[in-house]
Design a protein around this nucleic acid. Structure first.
Length: 110
DNA sequence: AGCTTGACCGACC
DNA sequence: TGGTCGGCCAAGC
């Protein structure tokens, strides 16, 4: 139910939804990561794809490398730069497979 | 109104 | 371990 003033459905264009997503990303500690699904679940709004849509358009303003998909990877064009951050932050990362080890790096603090 | 497109996810093989 | 497939949710044409 999309009532005026209330939950703005997972609209990737909604300033409120964008704000919520970016706030969560900024709250992820160094060396930790969350998945798109984790964020959607925490916000109880939209879904993994909507979170991905927000990151695609507005992710540059936040530590975007701390948000990965459920396999611990990012799209090919971002892997190189993300790898540098992981090394710098000491994130548990599998270099040969270019993916974060979710088992140890996934943040559950909220 | 129907079909395609995404920084996705989980089950299956 | 890795590829496919169906489901998911909202946008855009």
């Amino acid at each position: 139910m999309t009532q005026p003033g209330l939950t703005p459905a997972g609209d990737p264009e909604s300033p409120v939804f964008i704000r919520q997503v970016l706030d969560v990303v900024e709250s992820i500690p160094r060396g930790m990561v969350l998945t798109y699904g984790d964020i959607a679940e925490f916000l109880e709004d939209g879904g993994p794809r909507q979170v991905g849509a927000v990151m695609s358009r507005h992710g540059a303003a936040v530590p975007w490398w701390r948000v990965v998909n459920a396999s611990g990877t990012l799209p090919p064009h971002l892997r190189g730069e993300a790898a540098r951050h992981y090394e710098d932050e000491g994130t548990s990362y599998d270099k040969s497979r270019e993916r974060v080890n979710l088992g140890t790096a996934r943040w559950d603090g909220q």
